[in-house]
């Protein structure tokens, strides 16, 4: 962290744990859950959000003194939509299969509350460098949760990671399957993602009791 002073590195590190956008700020859950059945999709989604959020934060922060506050939401939406179109076209060109799996959820990055939330809360009041770091930090915090959920759902649900059969082959009964292990089909269905995130929140809050909500 030679390039960054303490304050700046805090901008990146804070959202990774104690101010995580998903588990603490409750932002950007919509897309986080639907595409995490596979690790690959989660990673691509996290990278897309990383690009959109960091670039968008910089753009908004550069424009912050020009945007009239009454129409700022529309300006923000246009900036995000333009960035998301870039991501979508790149995915369609270089990873067509994956873009089909992600389907509408790439488009839904536009309305991902993380992005609007960070624009409103940070980029409108801070300079471009800080805004960039804040974007990176929050997108990483989002990505970490996505990857954790994707990891467990793919490992327990299909016995694979990135499509590699890490637990052996369920058909020919090799590896773990030879001693009677079964895939948990429950992890594949969409509601499992909610429960996994619920458990992550549980673990995080029992480790850091300051985060517990008042009843």
């Amino acid at each position: 962290m030679a390039l960054l002073n303490k304050k700046d590195s805090k901008l990146i590190l804070d959202p990774l744990a104690d101010n995580n956008p998903i588990t603490i700020q409750v932002l950007g859950i919509c897309s986080a859950l639907a595409i995490t059945a596979e690790l690959k999709a989660s990673v691509v989604m996290a990278l897309s959000v990383l690009f959109v959020l960091s670039a968008g934060n910089v753009v908004i922060s550069l424009l912050r003194n020009i945007i009239p506050s009454k129409i700022r939401i529309i300006v923000q939406l246009v900036v995000v939509a333009a960035l998301v179109i870039i991501v979508d076209q790149v995915l369609k060109a270089f990873a067509y299969e994956l873009s089909k799996t992600l389907s509408v959820f790439v488009g839904l990055i536009i309305t991902n509350c993380i992005i609007m939330g960070r624009f409103e809360a940070f980029a409108l009041g801070n300079g471009p460098k800080k805004a960039f770091l804040d974007g990176i930090g929050n997108a990483l915090g989002y990505g970490v949760i996505l990857v954790i959920v994707g990891f467990f759902r793919e490992l327990l649900g299909s016995g694979t990671l990135f499509g590699f059969k890490v637990l052996g082959d369920p058909v020919t009964k090799t590896g773990l399957y030879s001693i009677g292990y079964e895939n948990n089909g429950f992890m594949i269905i969409p509601p499992a993602a909610l429960i996994v995130v619920g458990i992550i929140i549980w673990v995080q809050r029992s480790r850091n009791r300051a985060l517990i909500e008042e009843a």
Binding site: P191, G198, I201, R205, S206
Partner: peptide, 20 residues
């Protein structure tokens, strides 16, 4: 409800169960 689950956590889990 267990303290760390209060609020957000339990809402997630309930939503998951409703989803099922």
């Amino acid at each position: 409800v267990p303290a760390p689950l209060r609020g957000l956590g339990i809402t997630f889990i309930i939503t998951g169960l409703m989803g099922i």
